[in-house]
């Protein structure tokens, strides 16, 4: 089926099977390989994107379910406070879980700029990082939340 997706501010079209997951369409059809498959089972969060501003595991969503929604992937973020904080706080090592963590944190900072520790924990427990101790990620996210910086700068 022909599918039109609003991804990172662009209308993209793809010819896909209705059974195709958003994760695979973003990667295989649209070349957005910043979206990482980690488990394809909803457990690890590496494939997290935002859909209408909410973090979403793209392995749990059919591409067709995203048809009338706004999808944002890591490729759509540029020089955002969350990205900068992740660099400054050494909040990644191998970098594979990083796009998912950043998209989740980015959405959190948008929707709950004053999120307390419990909320941050609740949200970020959706993602697995196997390299860091999580402490660095916590520092990065908390730095953004407390700074009150605008959290988005979309690429044009």
């Amino acid at each position: 089926m022909k599918l039109r997706l609003n991804v990172n501010g662009e209308i993209r079209s793809a010819d896909v099977r209705p059974a195709e997951l958003l994760l695979d369409v973003l990667r295989e059809n649209l070349g957005l390989t910043g979206v990482k498959p980690g488990c394809r089972h909803g457990d690890c969060g590496a494939c997290t994107v935002t859909v209408d501003g909410l973090p979403m595991k793209s392995c749990l969503m059919l591409a067709v379910e995203a048809a009338d929604k706004t999808v944002e992937t890591i490729e759509g973020l540029q020089d955002s406070p969350v990205q900068r904080a992740f660099v400054e706080k050494f909040a990644f090592q191998c970098g594979y879980c990083t796009p998912g963590f950043i998209m989740n944190s980015h959405a959190l900072a948008h929707l709950h700029p004053k999120a307390d520790k419990a909320t941050v924990r609740e949200w970020l427990q959706s993602n697995i990082c196997r390299c860091t101790s999580y402490e660095e990620i916590q520092e990065a996210v908390e730095a953004v939340l407390s700074s009150g910086q605008p959290t988005s700068r979309m690429m044009n």
Partner: peptide, 8 residues
Amino acid sequence: KVTGAATY
């Protein structure tokens, strides 16, 4: 690594 440009 923070922009998705790193390829695996």
